[in-house]
Amino acid sequence: MLDGGKSPGYIKVAVSRAATATEAVTEAVSQIERRTTCFVMAFVPTGMDLEVLAHELDRQMGGVPVFGCTTAGQITPNGYETGALMLVAFPRRYFRCASLFIPTLDPLPMQRISEDITRLKSQFQRTAGWRRFGLVLCDGVSKQEDLLASTLQVCLGDIPIYGGSAGDGLQFKATFVLHGGKFHSGAALVLLVETALDFMGLGFDHFRPSETLLVVTDAIPEERLVLELNGAPAATEYARKIGVSVADLSPEVFAENPVLVRQNNNYHVRAIHSVEADQGLSFMGAIDDGLVLTLGTGTEIIEALEAGLGVRGQGGQRPDFILAFDCVLRKLEFEQKGMCDEVSEVFRRHNVLGFNTYGEQHCGVHVNQTFVGIAFFDHTPEDLH
């Protein structure tokens, strides 16, 4: 049963907070009409037995495809949660889907992905009047998301792609995607989705660039590791620029003091993950020697959130629901500021549903500390109701 605000009209959302995988799946699946469902997305809390969970989902859904991932938190009809299994069922009346599983991300098989995506597009017959988008879920600690996102967007052409990196709480150790009745690490899942509904992609944060610049002067790009900024040890220089000691650096401090990268006249957050040996900084996105980073400053959070979610369809209507990929670092900042309840209330009013990620994919770009989503609207109400 939905326990937030007004329920979406075009999908079914099922939530269970049961302690065991079997109980959670049984409770959630009982809320779904399998006969009318095209596919299900599962957003999984930390600590559940993944083998049991995958087996029970496969068994109890009775042949309905289930795709999903482990998460760093869920966005349910109640807003932010950490211990909920959430299933989002997409009905055949409004959605069609084809999937591509990528079992290995390191090294990334770009030629194979290109061939497979081309084949998927050609074999997935178009429905007149329906539109397409791509969804990607990938291992959040693979360090391959930048190349994966850009490769997929090139392959899909004018079909926009959105998604998120799987999480595992805040451990940053092992994350998994769900495909074919099993959870897989070091892997990715691409869904090509066709829908009768209008939709709009979203991507926003609440930071603006400052005057403070940090130039990467020594890095190990394949490890996303910065050794020096402005010719000084990276952690020392970053801490000096934000006015704290190296000993005070933490995920909470990184979340409140992000660095931004300029790309195509837009600024994207390039999140810092941790301080490493010899004062290095580990990042959650691509870095390289010579990259110019700009220290970001925060704007009013709720105002930015309302503006980002307050989109309207072609007829001026509010979204029926918004499928969300929301960076865990945003939630971490909100928690530190005591704002999670307020943010959750905004999510409830806008029918936001999804999960907290280790990074987001937005139209070919891998970003951090960003809200990425897809807002779905009525297409032609007289035909669909």
Rank of each mutant, 00 (worst) to 15 (best):
G201R: 09
G169N: 13
S142W: 01
A149P: 02
F199V: 05
L148K: 00
E194G: 06
A187S: 14
V193C: 10
S210C: 02
L156G: 01
D158R: 13
L197C: 13
R208I: 10
V190R: 00
G169C: 09
S142M: 07
D205W: 03
V190D: 00
Y162W: 11
L148C: 03
T151W: 08
A174G: 14
H179Q: 10
D158Q: 12
S210H: 05
G203T: 09
L156D: 01
L170F: 04
V193S: 06
S210I: 03
G180F: 03
G164P: 03
P209I: 04
D139S: 09
L189E: 03
Q153N: 10
F204K: 12
F207Y: 15
D205K: 07
I161L: 14
V177A: 08
G186P: 01
F199H: 05
L148W: 00
L152T: 00
G201S: 12
V193W: 06
Q171L: 06
V154F: 11
L178E: 08
L192V: 06
K173S: 12
L170R: 11
S185P: 15
L170C: 10
L197N: 12
A196P: 12
H206S: 12
F172L: 10
L191A: 06
G140N: 05
L191P: 15
K143I: 00
V177K: 04
T151R: 11
E194H: 04
Q144V: 04
F204V: 14
A196F: 01
H184A: 03
A188D: 13
A166V: 09
G201P: 14
G181P: 15
F199M: 05
A149Y: 04
A188F: 01
G140D: 09
K182E: 14
I159M: 04
F204R: 14
V177Y: 07
L170P: 00
L148I: 02
G140P: 03
D168V: 05
Y162R: 12
V154N: 07
D139F: 04
L178C: 05
K143R: 15
E145D: 09
A187V: 01
L178R: 05
Y162L: 15
P160H: 12
K173A: 08
I161Q: 13
G163T: 03
V177T: 13
H179P: 00
Y162I: 13
G203M: 05
G180P: 10
G169I: 05
P160A: 06
L192D: 04
L152M: 06
A149E: 04
A149W: 02
S150Y: 03
A188W: 02
Y162C: 09
T195D: 03
H206M: 09
G186R: 06
C155D: 15
D158G: 02
P160E: 01
A196H: 03
I161H: 10
K143H: 13
F207E: 11
F176R: 08
V177N: 07
I161R: 05
T195Q: 06
D158M: 09
G203A: 11
F176A: 12
L202C: 07
L170M: 13
P209G: 13
H206F: 15
Q153T: 03
L152G: 01
L147Y: 08
G201T: 11
V190L: 15
S185T: 08
G186D: 11
L152S: 00
S185Q: 14
A188C: 12
G167S: 07
A188G: 11
T195P: 11
M200K: 15
D168M: 07
L147T: 04
